[in-house]
C-alpha cells in the first residue's frame, strides 16, 4: 500500500515531552518502513526561522513557515513530526486546515512538575525574569480543546504514550494495522496454529 502523508503535531509547554515522543515515534515509523521528517522547534529556529524572536507575531510567523514545509511534505507522502510549543489555538487551527492530514498530540504535565523537572534549566531562568515571553510563566498557553491524542507525561510512561499515538494513527488509517506488534514468538505461533488447525480454522 502506498504511504499516505500525514503530520503529527506535538503541542505543549517546554519540557512536556514533545521532542522525546517525536523521536520515539520517528524510530517506530522508520522501523515500519515509512518516510519520516522531523521538524523541531529547537532545530528550525537555527535555520528556517533564525530571524525570528518570541513575540506573538514572530511565533506566528515561525509556525506559519513550518506549516508550509509540513504541508509540502505531507502531500508528498511523508510522515511529518512537528514538535512546537505552538501555544495559540487559532494558529494551530490554521496549521490543521493548511496541512489536512493533521493529528494533534497534546503533551501535558502539571506546571509544577515541569518546573521541578526543568530539563533545559529554562523555567528557573524564566521565573527569575531572565527569559521574557516564556510560555507557561510569562506568556499564555491555550490547551487544545479536541486533540486527537492527549498525553500526560506525569502519569504515563513513554511506552504508553507512544502506544496511544500509534494506535490512533492506525485507527485513522495512516498506519497499516497488519504492522501491529507481534504477539507471539515463532514457537508460540506454531503452537497456536496447531490448535487452530485442530479446530479446522486453518
Amino acid at each position: 500500500m502506498e504511504q499516505k502523508g500525514f503530520t503529527v503535531w506535538f503541542t505543549g509547554l517546554s519540557g512536556s515531552g514533545k521532542t522525546a515522543l517525536a523521536l520515539r515515534l520517528e524510530e517506530e515509523l522508520r522501523r515500519r518502513g515509512l518516510k519520516v521528517e522531523r521538524l523541531d522547534g529547537d532545530i528550525v529556529r537555527q535555520g528556517l526561522t533564525r530571524d525570528l524572536g518570541f513575540s506573538k507575531e514572530d511565533r506566528d510567523k515561525n509556525i506559519e513557515r513550518v506549516t508550509f514545509v509540513a504541508k509540502l511534505l505531507t502531500r508528498n507522502g511523508v510522515a511529518v513530526l512537528c514538535s512546537f510549543i505552538s501555544p495559540y489555538r487559532d494558529v494551530r487551527a490554521r496549521s490543521r486546515q493548511e496541512i489536512g492530514n493533521f493529528v494533534e498530540v497534546y503533551c501535558y504535565a502539571p506546571l509544577e512538575t515541569l518546573i521541578e523537572r526543568d530539563v533545559k534549566g529554562l523555567y528557573k531562568k524564566a521565573i527569575a525574569g531572565e527569559i521574557p515571553n516564556f510560555t507557561g510563566i510569562s506568556d499564555p498557553y491555550e490547551p487544545p480543546e479536541n486533540p486527537e491524542v492527549m498525553i500526560d507525561s506525569s502519569q504515563e510512561t513513554e511506552e504508553e504514550s507512544l502506544a496511544k499515538i500509534v494506535r490512533k494513527l492506525e485507527e485513522l488509517g495512516y498506519l497499516s494495522p497488519t504492522e501491529s506488534e507481534k504477539a507471539y514468538t515463532e514457537e508460540e505461533e506454531a503452537l497456536i496454529e496447531a490448535r487452530l488447525a485442530a479446530l479446522g480454522y486453518l
Binding site: R167, E170, E171, P177, T178, A183, I192, E193, L196
Partner: peptide, 20 residues
Amino acid sequence: FVDRDPSSYKQFIPTSRTMK
C-alpha cells in the same frame, strides 16, 4: 481467526493487539 498481510502474503493470527 487468520488474516494476511497483502503486501507479503504472510498469514498471521489476529490478537488483542490487532484489535483496534
